[in-house]
């Protein structure tokens, strides 16, 4: 089976069957991954590849495919499970992602807006019998960034090098990134400056669109509500499917399960 990158083609993730001695090869954004089924063993190789953001061929899956060169990182897992099935799953980043609107925006008091932001995906490899994944690697290693009021107080995040947009139509659709509809509501009287936005992706679920733009990945809808007088902001994570996706299917749950779907945070901890 050989699948090439295309918005309408089959997706790069899902269940794949590899018989003993067969290698499957996945190239997703900057990641090259080769999974080989051996007798009682899974052998995985991965390394970075040259990839330009915006390139049309963002992924390819080749089964049977070639193994990677010796310079790739190798991991071997001994298993008793005789199954040939391997699951390749997309996941959201393991830290919050910071994004910027194309240009800083002021949100007037009492107004609400939705910004569409995209965040990088991680690739999980696991089989049906294991609790945790064999491998959890980024499809594109984002740059580290710091989000906080000072260099002493804040949180390590990833910088999304793409920019948030106010219209979904302007958003480039990429199968190696996940889209989020982030609503911001300003309950206060003063205008709110939106310069940097922190998206807590570890607490969001991942959905795929089954109809329009099949295979596109979306996260749970999220709303940030800036308080009236206080310096506190609330973040609401919607539990259902994203509202902009018709026939959304759950792909994976959040990395850090949310006990409370409404979190209160200091304003500077969400909006920079």
């Amino acid at each position: 089976m050989r699948a090439q990158s295309s918005v309408t083609a089959a997706q790069w993730w899902g269940r794949f069957d590899l018989r003993v001695g067969v290698t499957g090869r996945w190239d997703v954004a900057s990641l090259s991954l080769a999974v080989t089924r051996l007798a009682r063993e899974w052998r995985m190789q991965h390394r970075e590849r040259k990839f330009e953001e915006g390139s049309s061929a963002s992924w390819s899956v080749t089964v049977p495919g070639p193994v990677l060169d010796d310079d790739a990182e190798v991991m071997r897992y001994v298993v008793r499970d005789p199954s040939d099935a391997i699951m390749i799953q997309p996941a959201l980043a393991d830290r919050p992602v910071v994004t910027r609107p194309v240009e800083p925006i002021y949100l007037q008091g009492g107004e609400e807006t939705t910004i569409f932001v995209s965040s990088p995906l991680w690739v999980n490899v696991h089989n049906e019998t294991m609790d945790g994944p064999f491998l959890d690697v980024p499809s594109h290693r984002p740059s580290d960034t710091w989000f906080g009021p000072s260099t002493m107080e804040g949180e390590m995040c990833y910088a999304a090098r793409t920019q948030g947009r106010l219209s979904l139509a302007e958003m480039p659709l990429r199968l190696h990134r996940a889209l989020t509809a982030l609503s911001i509501r300003n309950k206060g009287k003063q205008p709110l400056l939106l310069e940097r936005l922190k998206l807590p992706v570890c607490q969001l679920s991942l959905y795929s669109s089954a109809r329009k733009h099949k295979g596109m990945l979306w996260t749970s809808d999220t709303t940030i509500v800036a308080g009236k007088e206080t310096e506190l902001a609330e973040i609401h994570v919607e539990t259902g499917a994203p509202r902009h996706v018709a026939g959304a299917e759950l792909v994976s749950g959040p990395r850090e399960p949310l006990e409370n779907y409404v979190l209160k945070r200091a304003m500077h901890a969400l909006l920079g």
């Binding site: 290693r141 740059s143 580290d144 960034t145 710091w146």
Partner: peptide
């Protein structure tokens, strides 16, 4: 600095 993922975007 921009291309090195270990180099922080901010500060």
């Amino acid at each position: 600095a921009d291309k090195n993922p270990l180099c922080l975007d901010e500060p």
